[in-house]
């Protein structure tokens, strides 16, 4: 069979909603696109622990601290589900980590913004996880089996993340005037970066067409962004907070919200490494990786020694 035939069979499986599994034939570009997308997603989960980790020791109550710890632990877990999904495509874990540390691989730009006040933790759960869920619910139906299965697991867990964030925002928005102004400040700073999470407009998005044809993505960036705005604006109204967009208004005809222009210069600037926390994030990940190196090596050496003893109990006892 020629590779053209392979490709036709592959596309017909996609069109028929048959999932692609690790050992199935797939075009190189499909494999590469998936490794890039899944590993970027994994890196985002891992780097995403940092802005929230910043507040664990300063959470205002034991209840909030337990919730935040559980959420950050989930994010570590999500990163690991995704790294192993990427490995089913032949990627090497250590290579992927190196790509993050050297800046070759990107992660979601949202995590390059700082968490300045406690309400930011609420805003992250509500808006950042809310935007992530909009994207991830779509990805539970992505064409690659291991990625779709990881997403199902992640979506089940993300729902708690968003709800705890909104509950935190309620506590702040319905609290003292100072607390309410902290909540408004958090919304002001996180709203636009959250909208940028969906990526460039469809017309400017380089990978979109092919990703839609292969059903890696199932909805366009602009479609997902619009869905997010439509569900989130009423949630902000309930909190009595103002969305920082003077152009935001309900469009009766479309039955959807119109909203203002996104500052794409800011977006590309952060993507290129010049956001408020880009350097700090990579430094933190590099430090964790380097400080953990001796632990990984020692655990491997210990495992090998145990295995040797198991294989040759006599030789080991003589040597001892």
């Amino acid at each position: 069979m020629t590779s053209l035939n392979f490709e036709a069979i592959f596309q017909s499986k996609i069109d028929d909603e048959v999932k692609i599994e690790p050992k199935d034939w797939m075009p190189d570009a499909y494999r590469k696109t998936l490794i890039r997308q899944i590993s970027q997603h994994a890196h985002s989960e891992i780097v995403g622990m940092l802005p929230e980790g910043n507040w664990i020791t300063r959470a205002p109550s034991l209840r909030r601290k337990l919730i935040l710890l559980a959420k950050v632990q989930d994010e570590a877990g999500h990163g690991l589900y995704l790294y192993s999904a990427a490995e089913t495509l032949g990627a090497d874990r250590d290579d992927l980590v190196q790509q993050l540390l050297t800046g070759k691989a990107k992660y979601s730009s949202i995590f390059n913004y700082p968490t300045l006040n406690w309400a930011d933790i609420g805003a992250i759960g509500w808006l950042v996880d809310g935007a992530a869920i909009t994207n991830q619910v779509m990805l539970t139906r992505t064409s690659y089996g291991p990625y779709a299965r990881a997403m199902v697991r992640i979506c089940k867990e993300e729902s708690f993340h968003q709800r705890q964030g909104y509950e935190l925002m309620m506590a702040m928005a319905f609290g003292s005037p100072e607390q309410k102004s902290m909540a408004q400040d958090a919304l002001n700073r996180w709203w636009w970066p959250a909208l940028m999470m969906f990526g460039p407009h469809d017309a400017e998005s380089t990978h979109s067409d092919q990703a839609l044809k292969w059903k890696i993505k199932r909805k366009s960036n602009d479609e997902l962004r619009q869905n997010f705005v439509d569900v989130t604006v009423p949630q902000a109204e309930y909190l009595g907070l103002t969305v920082p967009d003077p152009d935001l208004c309900w469009n009766e005809e479309r039955g959807r919200y119109d909203f203002g222009k996104i500052n794409w210069d800011e977006f590309w600037n952060v993507v290129k490494g010049n956001g408020p926390c880009n350097r700090q994030r990579i430094q933190a990940r590099t430090k964790a990786y380097e400080d953990g190196a001796w632990v990984r090596e020692a655990a491997m050496a210990h495992a090998e020694k145990k295995e040797q003893r198991r294989m040759q109990p006599e030789a080991a006892s003589k040597a001892a």
Partner: peptide, 11 residues
């Protein structure tokens, strides 16, 4: 359910 890295079976 998926996979993970570990030094040995116990881990």
């Amino acid at each position: 359910v998926g996979s993970l890295h570990a030094a040995d079976a116990e881990m």
